[in-house]
Amino acid sequence: MSTLLPIFATAFMYVIIYAILSIGLNLQYGVTGIVNFTYYTFVAIGAYVAGVLTLGKPPAGSGETYILGLNLPFPIPIVLAALVAGLFGGLLALTVFRRLRSDYLAITTLCAGTVAFDIVTNSTGLFNGPNGIYGVPTPLASTFGVPPQNTYMVLIPIGLVILALVWWVAHCIDLSPYGRTLRAIREGRDAAAAFGKNTLRLQLGVMILGCAIAGIGGALTVEFVGAFNPSAFETVETFVVYAAVILGGPGNNLGVILGAVLVQGVIIQGSLYLPTIGAESLVPAIRNMVIGGMVILVLYFRPRGMVGETRPQLGVPRRRGLGVRSAPGSRGEADS
């Protein structure tokens, strides 16, 4: 029991983080239909910002170099991580959210992710280059006298509170006229614009909010793991969050939490304890094939995911037996 508890607690903490990330991505992809192929870059921004704000100055002679090192107390690093990640998300959105098709945004986000990777790796003065930052202390651990190997004892409650807050914000957006307009943009941006909606501003808001939530998830990651390095920029990291959203149910905040439990809790955490067969990279490679394959199959056979969006079609009164509900994958730009 004593050996199993840390394993389950660690998996549970990752599920909490990925549930937060999935809600943020769901706002962008599931609700508004924005394809951001570098979502995890904003997680990385949040993690790095929270890391260097929590850490003190790099110890002399350690060879480590990073900016700031302000030694700020919880929860300031998490809040600032959200703000900085949101700011970068907004900047990226501003350059591409004019009257451009969804491909262009996806391409630009992909490019931005590669550039962010290059900057973080090459500018060693920023976040310690390819080695990344490490030794980030867990917030409040010393206050409550929690031993370093049991950091989940403080972080799971903090994570659950943040998850509840993030879910509540997303839920309120869901029910508000703002959320309805976002869905209208997903179903047809030109139509929403024709009804006098400022689609640029609304999409910008979603981009900022979603990326800020990514930043919060990143901050929690770095405070939990204690370290962060540029390998986080790999495509698969972003894809895992998409998998949680798509399998769980795009547009449904509880659905994407369920997706995070399935993808992060079962598939990824579970595969860590599989025996190594062949080369070291073989099990992760097979796992990624399974995740990629599942996403493609679900997109085809069950575009609504496990738990579909519960809202009735725009302008269609709720009726018994109305099978088709709006979700990305059911209708939209038919220019393919």
């Binding site: 969804s102 491909d103 730009e333 220019d335």
Partner: peptide, 12 residues
């Protein structure tokens, strides 16, 4: 399928 879905499939 909408473009967004096609992009996701190529990403997968």
């Amino acid at each position: 399928s909408p473009t967004v879905v096609l992009l996701m499939v190529t990403f997968g």
